[in-house]
Nucleic acid binder design. Structure first.
Ligand SMILES: [Mn+2]
Ligand SMILES: [Mn+2]
Ligand SMILES: [Mn+2]
Ligand SMILES: [Mn+2]
Lengths: 233, 233
DNA sequence: ACAGGGCATTAGGTTAGCCTAATTATCAGA
DNA sequence: TCTGATAATTAGGCTAACCTAATGCCCTGT
C-alpha cells in the first residue's frame, strides 16, 4: 500500500462545550488581539486549567491558534464555526421574542442551551418566518447564513459627548433583571437619546428621549448602552 | 451535631442520556411487564453492558426498579420524568410541523435532540400557540403537563378483520422515508379504511379509503398502522 | 539583574457514558 | 438432571470535561 493522502477527515460534530469555547474566543477577540486563558475561564465559569486543556485540543483540531502564555485566536475554520453559533443564538432569541412572546430578558438563557440542539434547517426556517432579521432583540447584528457579520464602531452612552444626539443600538443581553429595567425605562434599541448632562468622577449621564422625558443612567449601566450617531448628525 | 434528617436532595437535572433511557423503558413497558437489557440496548443503539451500567445508576437514584436478570420498570418518579420527555417530544413535533412547515417524516429526529434542551416554559408556550393539541403529527397522544396520558387499545391494520371499517389513528414516527410514502398514499391519521381483503401467509391487506380508491399494504407496514374501530361500528 | 506577583500550564484525579472481552445466570430441551 | 444457547453482568479501558494543587513563565519595579 502506498501512503495515500488522507482526505480531510469527516470531522465529528462539535460538542456543546467546544461550541461555547469558540463563541467566547470570538467575543473576546472581536476588538483584535488575543483571548487570554483567564478571560475565557471567567466568561465560561470554569477553572483556568480547564481552559488550558481545551485550548490544546482545539489547536490540535485546527479551530484556534494558541500562543502559549499569550492567548488564542480563531483560525478561519474556528471563526466560521463561532459565527454559525452566534447566528443560531441570535435567530433563536429573535424567534422566541417575536413568535412565542418571550420577554427579552429571558431569551438569552434559553438560546444558550438551544443553540447546541437546533439543526441548520430549523434555524433557516425560523429566520425565514421572521423575514431574515438583521438584528436580535438586544440590537446585536445577526451573522448571515454565509458567515458575514456587520461590524459597527459603537460608543457607549457613558462616552457619548454632552450635547450630542445618538441612537441606542445595542444592549448586553446577559442579565434578565437589567433588561427588564431598561425596557421599563423605554431604553430599547432604536430609541434616540440626546445627552444633556454628565456628572464628573464616573457620575451618571442624563439623556432626553424623543418624547421629552429624561433618564439618569449611572456609569455602570451607561457603559453597556452602545450607541451610534443619530442619522442627522 | 445530631444526625440531621437529610432533606430530599436537590436532585441534579437529568442528563440527555438518562432522559433517553427513561423514555425507552417507558415505551418498552407500555404493555406491562419488564423492559429487558437487550431491548433497551437495541432501541438506543448502545451495547448491552452500557445498559446494565446505566440501570444500576438509575435504580440507585430511584428512577427505575431493577430485577437483576429480569429487567426494569419505571418507578412513579421515573414515569413522571419519562412522560415529561414524551410531552416535550410530541409538542415539538407538532410545533415544527404546524408552525414551521416541517415534513412529518423529519420532525422526529429534530425533536429527539431538542427535547433535552427546551425549558418547561418554552414547551408550554408552544403548546399554547398550538391550542393544546392532544395528538402529535403521527397520531400519538400527547401527555398533559400534569403527566396524564391517554391509553387506547388500538389494533394494527394487519390484524383488523376483513369487512370491518376502522380509522387510522397512529403511525410509527421513526422512519422518514416510510412516512413520506404513507403521506403520498393518503394514509394519515384520521383517514377511514374499510378492510376488503387479506392474503394468507402474512400477505398484504387491501383497504378502501373514503374516496373509493384502494390501497394494498404489505404486512410489515400494515403492522405499524394502528387503528381504532370507526365511530359507527 | 533579579525578586515577586500574577497568570498559565502541568500533574493528577473524578464522573458520565460509552466500548470489548470475559464471566455468570437462566431456561429450555434432551 | 444435565447441558448448551442466550442473555445479563462484571471486569477493565477509553474519551470528554471538569476539578484542585503544584509548578513554571513572564514582566515589572527596584
Ligand atoms: Mn451555549
Ligand atoms: Mn442577544
Ligand atoms: Mn417522535
Ligand atoms: Mn432524545
Amino acid at each position: 500500500m502506498s501512503a495515500a493522502i488522507r482526505s480531510p477527515q469527516p470531522s465529528p460534530p462539535l460538542t456543546r462545550s467546544v461550541e461555547d469555547y469558540l463563541k467566547s474566543v470570538f467575543h473576546l477577540t472581536s476588538q483584535g488581539g488575543f483571548a487570554t486563558t483567564s478571560d475565557i475561564a471567567e466568561m465560561l465559569e470554569v477553572a483556568p486549567p480547564s481552559v488550558s486543556g481545551m485550548m490544546k485540543r482545539l489547536s490540535e483540531t485546527g479551530l484556534i491558534e494558541h500562543v502559549p502564555y499569550r492567548g488564542v485566536q480563531l483560525t478561519p475554520q474556528g471563526r466560521r464555526a463561532a459565527l454559525q453559533m452566534i447566528r443560531r443564538h441570535r435567530i433563536l432569541e429573535s424567534y422566541l421574542t417575536s413568535k412565542l412572546g418571550f420577554d427579552w430578558g429571558d431569551v438569552h438563557v434559553e438560546a444558550e442551551r438551544l443553540e447546541h440542539a437546533v439543526s441548520e434547517k430549523l434555524i433557516e426556517r425560523m429566520a425565514d418566518a421572521l423575514g431574515e432579521p438583521r438584528y436580535d432583540p438586544h440590537g446585536a447584528p445577526i451573522p448571515t447564513a454565509a458567515g458575514e457579520i456587520e461590524e459597527a464602531e459603537l460608543v457607549s452612552l457613558a462616552a457619548a459627548e454632552v450635547g450630542h444626539t445618538v441612537v441606542l443600538q445595542e444592549v448586553s443581553d446577559e442579565h434578565p433583571a437589567r433588561l427588564r429595567y431598561l425596557a421599563e425605562q423605554g431604553l430599547r434599541p432604536g430609541v434616540q437619546l440626546t445627552v444633556i448632562d454628565r456628572q464628573p468622577f464616573n457620575g451618571p449621564t442624563t439623556a432626553r428621549l424623543g418624547d421629552g422625558t429624561t433618564r439618569v443612567v449611572g456609569q455602570e449601566l451607561a457603559l453597556l448602552l452602545l450607541c451610534r450617531p443619530a442619522d442627522g448628525e
